[in-house]
């Protein structure tokens, strides 16, 4: 999957939370990030690959099954790599014009829900909770645990609202509306690792 947004929206933290939660649930995970030198306002993108076992993936993805869209400014770069029929979970509060195309769109008013649970800064976690529930990739409990581990000690005041945000997102959507496909068979290659010693 690809996660996209504008720097400062918590896209990288959401990616890391998802990757850590999936690892804790026993999956093999690979995550890479791309963002500019600026702290806020620039392009931010992360990719996460989740596999049952035998993860074989390059860290720069050619195509993805799903996308997490916090903001549409950098959407075209993601759309180019979305497979036909893919899944898009988008923050409809700030995405003015929801993208259209050959994919299944799940609009989630993440910004609005975040305000409702008193977590105005945590809309990224609302959308992540929704993404986890729609795809069934990770349970909300694993996301909450991962978030608790990732929030640094000097930011613990955000733990309660972050948790509320994750749960609000998960509760706002239909669970397993678009279950993630697992187990695409990998072709077995005749690989051998050699050593002269």
């Amino acid at each position: 999957m690809l996660l996209t947004g504008i720097g400062g929206q918590g896209v990288q933290l959401a990616a890391k939370t998802l990757a850590m939660a999936a690892t804790a649930e026993g999956h093999q995970v690979l995550m890479s990030s791309h963002y500019g030198g600026e702290m806020r306002g620039g392009q931010t993108e992360a990719s996460v690959v989740i596999a049952d076992e035998g993860l074989r993936s390059v860290p720069i993805l050619e195509s993805v099954w799903s996308a997490y869209v916090m903001h549409a400014r950098y959407w075209p770069a993601v759309a180019d790599r979305l497979r036909p029929g893919g899944v898009v979970v988008a923050n409809s509060t700030v995405v003015d014009e929801l993208p259209t195309g050959d994919f299944r769109l799940f609009p989630v008013p993440a910004g609005q829900l975040a305000v409702e649970v008193g977590a105005v800064m945590s809309s990224g976690f609302v959308l992540l909770g929704a993404y986890g529930a729609i795809t069934g990739l990770v349970g909300v409990e694993a996301l909450v645990s991962a978030m608790r581990e990732l929030v640094p000690p000097y930011r613990t005041q955000h733990l309660v609202v972050n948790e509320a945000a994750l749960r609000a997102g998960a509760g706002a959507v239909t669970a397993l509306d678009a279950p993630a496909p697992f187990g695409a068979p990998a072709r077995s290659a005749r690989a051998s690792v050699g050593t002269a010693g």
Binding site: A189, A191, S192, V193, G194, T195, A196, G197
Partner: peptide
């Protein structure tokens, strides 16, 4: 003599071999 290491994938019978290193 003794410390070379490599990975070879499907090279047996291959007409083309692509060599690369690292990531």
């Amino acid at each position: 003599r003794v410390e070379t290491r490599w990975e070879s994938i499907d090279c047996e019978g291959a007409e083309t071999v692509v060599v690369s290193f690292g990531t």
